[in-house]
Write a protein that binds this DNA or RNA. Structure first.
Length: 257
DNA sequence: AAATCGGGGAA
DNA sequence: TTCCCAGATTT
C-alpha cells in the first residue's frame, strides 16, 4: 500500500484491511475483486490484485507465513527491491539496506552533493550499505531514520537544513546548494482528462456495484464527467480487462472473481 | 533505459 | 496549476 502512496493516506485503509484479513490465507480465500474493492481509492489498483496474488503465493508456497529471505520475498508478486528489504529489515530485524524515495534523496545530497536523486539504480543499495551500522538492530533503525529524515527534514521542496542532524557532513550543503539535479523522470501527464482518470471512474462504478453490470453501463460510467475523445472509454475499459481488473462474461462486467 | 500505472495533499 | 509520494512491472 505504501508504494508511491503517502503514509497518512494509507494508515486507515491498512487498519481496516488487517482487521478483515489478519493472515495471508484469509486474503487468499477471497476473490481478487474483493481486494480491489477494499483497496478503494488508494490508487494503482493493480497493487490490490498483486497483493492478493502474493497472499495466495504465501499461503500455498510458504505455509501461510511471510518469508524472511529477501530472495523469497522478491519472488512474490508485487514485491520489489524496496518492499522486500523493508520487510526483511523491519519485520524480521535482519541487516539489509532499505532505500525508498526519501532515502535516495538523502543519499544524493549528503553523499553525492546533488540536489536530488537521479533514476533509481542498484548503486542506491551499495551506497546505503556503506553507511549501515554492523549490528542488525541498529541497521534497521538507521534505515528507518534515513527515511524519516528525508520525509520530515531533507524534504524535496524546502529542506530544513537548520535542524538537520547531518547538515555538518552534507556534501550538497557544503558545496553551497548547487542546482545540479540529474535528469529526473519525465513529468507525469495531467490527471484530469487522462485515461487514468477514466479507468478510475470505471473501476469506481464496479466497486460500488454488488452485482455485475453491463458493459454498456461500464462505458457510460467511463464517460461520466466527460471525455477528451470518445475512444477513451473503450480504451480505458480494454486496458482494465487486459490488466485483469475487470472480467467480462456474456456482456456483463465485474471485478475479478 | 523508458513507459505505464492513481489519486490526494501541499506549495 | 505543478510537484511529489515508504515502487514495481513490462517492454
Amino acid at each position: 500500500m505504501l508504494q508511491q502512496t503517502q503514509v497518512d493516506r494509507v494508515l486507515p485503509r491498512w487498519s481496516e484491511w488487517m482487521q478483515r484479513w489478519p493472515t495471508p490465507s484469509a486474503l487468499a480465500a477471497e476473490e481478487p475483486g474483493e481486494a480491489v474493492r477494499a483497496w478503494g481509492r488508494l490508487g494503482y489498483p493493480r497493487r490490490a490484485l498483486w497483493l492478493h496474488r502474493a497472499a495466495v503465493e504465501i499461503a500455498e508456497q510458504h505455509d501461510d507465513r511471510v518469508p524472511a529471505d529477501v530472495d523469497a520475498l522478491l519472488a512474490l508478486t508485487g514485491i520489489g527491491p524496496y518492499t522486500a528489504r523493508a520487510v526483511a529489515a523491519f519485520a524480521f530485524g535482519d541487516r539489509h539496506p532499505v532505500v525508498d524515495t526519501n532515502t535516495r534523496r538523502v543519499i544524493a545530497r549528503v553523499m553525492h552533493g546533488r540536489a536530488a536523486a537521479g533514476m533509481p539504480s542498484p548503486t542506491d543499495l551499495t551506497d546505503m550499505e556503506r553507511l549501515l551500522p554492523e549490528e542488525p538492530g541498529a541497521a534497521a533503525r538507521f534505515n528507518a531514520a534515513a527515511m524519516e529524515l528525508g520525509a520530515t527534514v531533507c524534504t524535496a521542496r524546502a529542506p530544513k537544513c537548520g535542524v538537520c542532524p547531518v547538515a555538518e557532513w552534507c556534501e550538497w550543503r557544503g558545496a553551497g546548494y548547487p542546482d545540479n539535479a540529474p535528469a529526473k523522470r519525465p513529468r507525469q501527464a495531467a490527471f484530469s482528462g487522462s485515461d487514468r482518470q477514466v479507468r478510475g471512474r470505471i473501476l469506481e462504478s464496479l466497486r460500488d456495484a454488488s452485482t455485475p453490470i453491463t458493459v454498456a453501463a461500464a462505458l457510460a460510467a467511463a464517460a461520466d464527467g466527460g471525455l477528451r475523445e470518445p475512444e477513451q472509454a473503450q480504451r480505458a475499459y480494454d486496458s482494465l480487462v487486459s490488466d485483469g481488473l475487470i472480467v467480462e462474461n456474456g456482456g456483463l462486467a465485474s471485478l475479478p472473481t
